[in-house]
Write a protein that binds this DNA or RNA. Structure first.
Lengths: 227, 227
DNA sequence: TTATTAAGATGATAATTGTCATGTTATTTT
DNA sequence: AAAATAACATGACAATTATCATCTTAATAA
């Protein structure tokens, strides 16, 4: 039962501050789920009443617009927590969380988290720092949306995905995003995204291997993204 | 000396969780400053090592881009705290804070805040909730940047400014922003902003009283912003 | 396997928004 | 008060990006 101790989320997230006793309590209160690619963990407006630990897979936090476009706010990977914000604020979820690759998650009920808050200052501090990190990222992405062109944002995003998720054995990006999802991250139309990928391909910056993407000239991509 | 107890920041911010004894400690460790319009509280990259309480005035958090444009991320008004994020993350400031209207602020050193964190759970929770609130706002603004047109964002921003800062006796918006600053909030070129204000004026949505702006048709502005 | 649907790709075109130029009106400074 | 500067305003034009249409290829269902 008490596998939480070895769990990657325990090692990487705010939960690393928990002591032995707390981990045991955690193990007893958690529930484990499997979420298939495309399925939702929670939808905008739902009250989650707890936090999800991502043991495996990749998820996206996004918001659907009136015109049917899905703006992706953040990708989450194994080792991360999900749903802290709305739990802390006591609000229904502001975003929808869906699996991009099959996920394995554990749900920790709110009462347990609150308990940790009240008895473990380091845990509180970790959680606060993680929210702060999200805030900083969000602010910087907001600025990039305004100050950079779509081309620059695509280059930047490809580099981010490479950094965060690494590459497969065939050197292509490990995260498998559709062009539509990629467009949803950089905030542009799917066609524009496809067109630019095609341009990058012709310029030798990347190589398109079927639907997969291989970064060929990281330096040039960086230059493009920064300037 | 111990005016902190009556202070608006004490009443409105996370500091409201402090007890009498803590407020006395606060009053003894704080320093008060006056910041003239246009002056900076701190600049991007600076280590602040504490938190600022905004007693009076208005400030902006912004980032200067390579091309000289200043993207405004957030406005802060009296009763709010400033600089929590970088203090909590232990990082230099990610944004520059400048006064838009003459400010009166108090500086609370980091050691004091950490002390409150460790001894007052409600304070920690309040602070965490306030950062979460910022995060939610930032995410929503990020989405709006992508999913809405400049026109919609201008309408939305005018309504926000009206809600948050209210109006002067002459019914114009109380915050005095230059067109350039307004453009910096909605993320567009100054000329585009001016042009749209002029359009809104012609359409009877607003009235331009010199440099000041009066909202004339809130309902129509809301409709424009939402749809 | 074939039919059907989804994803990717590309051209043509339109709309939005940015840039540069120039002029006017306020606001400071001298 | 005159000069200088900053803020506001508008036209002309260019660039970027979105939209619509169409086609190809891949994935999924029948």
């Amino acid at each position: 039962m008490n596998k939480c101790d070895q769990c990657i989320v325990r090692q990487l997230s705010s939960l690393k501050a928990l002591n032995k006793e707390e981990v045991i309590k955690l193990a007893n209160s958690k529930t484990t789920y499997k979420i298939k690619k495309g399925e939702a963990l929670f939808e905008e407006g739902e009250v989650t009443n707890g936090v999800f630990c991502v043991k495996d897979g990749v998820g996206k936090l996004s918001k659907l617009s009136a015109n049917g476009k899905d703006q992706i706010v953040k990708l989450v990977k194994s080792g991360e927590l999900l749903g802290q914000r709305s739990m802390i604020s006591n609000e229904p979820a502001n975003l929808t969380a869906k699996a991009i690759a099959d996920m394995e998650v554990c749900f920790i009920p709110k009462a347990e988290i609150i308990n940790f808050f009240n008895n473990n200052n380091q845990f509180s501090l970790n959680m606060m720092q993680s929210v702060c990190e999200d805030l900083k990222e969000s602010e910087n992405e907001k600025i990039a949306l305004v100050q950079k062109t779509v081309k620059q944002r695509l280059a930047e995003t490809l580099l981010h995905l490479h950094d965060e998720f690494g590459e497969d054995t065939d050197k292509t990006l490990r995260v498998q995003l559709t062009r539509e999802e990629l467009a949803g991250i950089i905030g542009t139309a799917t066609e524009s995204c496809i067109r630019l990928l095609s341009d990058f391909n012709k310029l030798g910056l990347i190589e398109l291997v079927g639907k997969k993407i291989m970064l060929k000239d990281v330096r040039a991509l960086k230059k493009l993204a920064d300037n």
